[in-house]
Nucleic acid binder design. Structure first.
Lengths: 228, 228
DNA sequence: GCAAAAGTGTTCCTTTTACACCCATGC
DNA sequence: GCATGGGTGTAAAAGGAACACTTTTGC
């Protein structure tokens, strides 16, 4: 009576974003060690084990393949076209992740022959439908940053205002008036101004700031909307 | 060498929304015919066949279980907690769908003992984690309607302006000034005003309107943003 | 002619944009 | 002392919110 369903395998993939003010937005890719697409760059990922959550699978695979631990992880979309993997039917739950600059170091391992950061403007050819996944992730990040304070996940804990500003300019792909941006962002009341100043670099050193997570959640509970 | 992965089953579920001005937003649920949760209301859905796309699986299951055909379908989120199904590990790709009032008629079939519309304010107890899925779908719909013109998928092809207005009031859960709303919406330039007037009903009959999809996509291509 | 809903315009206020000058530091 | 980037305020413009009166229909 029960219909016999041929099995479908399930994997997770993760688009990991990093940011450096002078290099822009980068994505962590691995070079595949096995066929199909052996030697081609791909988004890290792998099979989900039967007793682990999807998020756990993502974190585990990222650690195994690239040695990285991310500080922000969110589901992006599930890709399930019958022919997206040439071997067999695979449904992949894609995530995107953000990492802070101080854990930028990666080391290839496991199924990866290499692991490297690529600027999102200069991507190599990608395996499977990973180009499409990556594009969707970039689109999502651009959007997300406009209505949720996720940008901080790409910055150091303490950062000069100019880095936040540059991050938004980079993601929006256009110039944003420095003064108006600062006015608006500060008026949200979710940044702590620190006593420290930014050392090194040219010009007048600016004060450092820190994201005030508690304040943000207080305001959010009150129904105040982040929008930038 | 290859690790043996115990299999995970994959299903699709669909939160189907309908709207009637005097009844508000409703959701289509089915009464389960089998265990687990036999006799409990649930979101329609089922297993994905190995050679069909996820969207196809959703449409097929909806047709089988409830007899309905939807005119808008979008992926919501993938739920994959190890214990979300008491029998075995199941990852479910959830969708949400919108139907127009004229195909509101449903007939239970297949695995469903019953299929009924429930107002989203008066939901019964639901099987599995379906309450959570439904809440997420409602949240998503509320949001979506603010930045994409999906509201029309819940209205008849020709509708009086008041219905569009009421739909937004219902979803936003608050009053919206009728005149400002109309001014803003019409200024988007994506509505065709028809010669026909709304027949029946109380008060002065209003003109009927129609969503101008072509115009919308033209404007979208130009970078003009829908926001209401 | 009364109740109900639709059509329409103006004013006020808030938010956004545009823009310029001075200040602190490194070399 | 000069180049570089940081800090700050104001005025004009645009967009959003508040609001009232007239018109068309059914009963």
């Amino acid at each position: 009576m029960a219909k016999e369903y041929p099995r479908i395998d399930i994997t997770v993939d993760a688009v990991v974003f990093g940011y450096k003010p002078d290099e822009g937005i980068s994505v962590l890719l691995i070079k595949r060690k096995k066929d199909p697409f052996k030697g081609t760059w791909a988004i890290p990922g792998g099979f989900v084990e039967v007793d682990e959550s999807l998020e756990h699978a993502v974190s585990r695979e990222l650690k195994e393949e690239t040695g990285i631990e991310v500080n922000y992880l969110e589901q992006l979309y599930t890709f399930g076209e019958p022919k997206r993997d040439p071997r067999k039917r695979i449904v992949s739950v894609a995530y995107y992740a953000l990492v802070k600059p101080d854990i930028y170091e990666v080391h290839a391992a496991d199924d990866a022959e290499g692991a490297e950061w690529f600027n999102i403007e200069k991507l190599p050819k990608l395996a499977f439908d990973h180009k499409y996944i990556l594009e969707m992730a970039i689109f999502r990040l651009r959007n997300k940053i406009s209505y949720e304070p996720v940008g901080f996940e790409l910055l150091d804990k303490h950062f000069p205002f100019s880095e936040l500003h540059k991050l938004y300019e980079t993601l929006y792909g256009k110039e944003i008036d420095r003064r108006n941006f600062k006015k608006k962002f500060l008026s949200l009341g979710i940044l702590k101004e620190l006593k420290e100043k930014n050392s090194g670099g040219k010009g007048r050193p600016g004060l450092l700031y820190q994201f005030d997570k508690d304040k943000y959640f207080q305001l959010k509970k009150k129904g105040i909307v982040f929008e930038i």
